[in-house]
Amino acid sequence: MANNNIGSKRLVVGAHYGLRDWLAQRATAVVMALYTIILLVCFFTSTNFSYQGWAALFSHQWFRIATFVTLMALFFHAWIGVRDALMDYVKPVAVRLVLQVATILWLVGCAGYAAQILWRI
């Protein structure tokens, strides 16, 4: 009798990240799209396109929080993409680990710098 790997007795292997990562990237993309719409509405309804106009826009706490949440979504979106690319194309585990840690450190640094910029205005 032949080995039949089709159906309910099929051997499933792998990390099973696919659906979770796909949903996370779609959710972060929705957050970024909503922020883009908010930013476009603010841009098209504003008449003051100077530094003072942008500073006034970012002086609202809700806008700073929305910007920071969007940046966190962007960083998480980037992390998923970079991690998946590294898992697919970098086969030596040590090299992949170093690149993943470097990516995490870079993204955490970007998040800290973004917070510093947003709350310095």
Results as ranks from 00 to 15, higher is better:
residue 2 A to R: 14
residue 3 N to G: 08
residue 3 N to W: 07
residue 3 N to L: 15
residue 5 N to Q: 13
residue 11 L to W: 00
residue 11 L to R: 08
residue 12 V to F: 00
residue 12 V to P: 06
residue 16 H to V: 15
residue 16 H to P: 08
residue 17 Y to R: 13
residue 17 Y to L: 12
residue 18 G to V: 02
residue 19 L to S: 01
residue 20 R to G: 07
residue 21 D to G: 01
residue 21 D to K: 00
residue 22 W to F: 13
residue 23 L to F: 11
residue 24 A to P: 03
residue 24 A to C: 06
residue 25 Q to L: 04
residue 26 R to Y: 02
residue 28 T to V: 12
residue 29 A to R: 01
residue 30 V to E: 05
residue 30 V to D: 01
residue 32 M to P: 08
residue 32 M to H: 00
residue 32 M to F: 00
residue 33 A to E: 06
residue 33 A to C: 04
residue 34 L to N: 01
residue 35 Y to D: 02
residue 36 T to R: 04
residue 37 I to V: 15
residue 38 I to W: 07
residue 38 I to A: 08
residue 40 L to C: 13
residue 40 L to Y: 03
residue 42 C to H: 11
residue 43 F to I: 15
residue 43 F to E: 10
residue 44 F to W: 10
residue 45 T to I: 12
residue 47 T to H: 14
residue 48 N to F: 03
residue 49 F to R: 07
residue 49 F to E: 00
residue 50 S to C: 11
residue 51 Y to T: 15
residue 51 Y to K: 12
residue 52 Q to C: 04
residue 52 Q to F: 13
residue 53 G to K: 04
residue 53 G to H: 03
residue 56 A to S: 04
residue 57 L to Y: 11
residue 57 L to C: 12
residue 58 F to E: 02
residue 60 H to Q: 13
residue 60 H to K: 15
residue 61 Q to E: 13
residue 61 Q to I: 15
residue 62 W to F: 12
residue 63 F to D: 01
residue 64 R to H: 11
residue 65 I to Q: 02
residue 66 A to K: 09
residue 67 T to F: 06
residue 67 T to P: 10
residue 67 T to N: 11
residue 68 F to V: 14
residue 68 F to H: 03
residue 68 F to N: 02
residue 70 T to S: 07
residue 70 T to F: 03
residue 71 L to S: 10
residue 73 A to G: 09
residue 74 L to V: 11
residue 74 L to K: 02
residue 76 F to D: 00
residue 76 F to W: 03
residue 77 H to A: 00
residue 78 A to V: 14
residue 78 A to F: 01
residue 80 I to K: 05
residue 80 I to F: 04
residue 81 G to W: 00
residue 82 V to H: 06
residue 82 V to A: 09
residue 84 D to H: 11
residue 84 D to W: 06
residue 84 D to C: 13
residue 85 A to N: 09
residue 86 L to E: 08
residue 86 L to W: 06
residue 87 M to F: 10
residue 87 M to W: 15
residue 87 M to G: 15
residue 89 Y to I: 15
residue 90 V to W: 04
residue 91 K to W: 10
residue 91 K to D: 10
residue 92 P to E: 04
residue 92 P to T: 13
residue 92 P to S: 07
residue 93 V to I: 15
residue 94 A to C: 04
residue 95 V to I: 15
residue 96 R to P: 15
residue 96 R to F: 06
residue 98 V to D: 01
residue 99 L to P: 13
residue 99 L to F: 05
residue 100 Q to M: 12
residue 101 V to A: 01
residue 101 V to C: 11
residue 101 V to M: 12
residue 102 A to D: 07
residue 103 T to D: 03
residue 103 T to V: 15
residue 104 I to K: 05
residue 106 W to L: 13
residue 106 W to K: 11
residue 107 L to Y: 01
residue 109 G to L: 06
residue 110 C to E: 07
residue 111 A to Y: 03
residue 112 G to A: 08
residue 112 G to R: 07
residue 114 A to L: 08
residue 117 I to L: 14
residue 119 W to E: 03
residue 120 R to Q: 09
residue 121 I to T: 14
residue 121 I to H: 07
residue 121 I to Q: 08
residue 121 I to K: 10
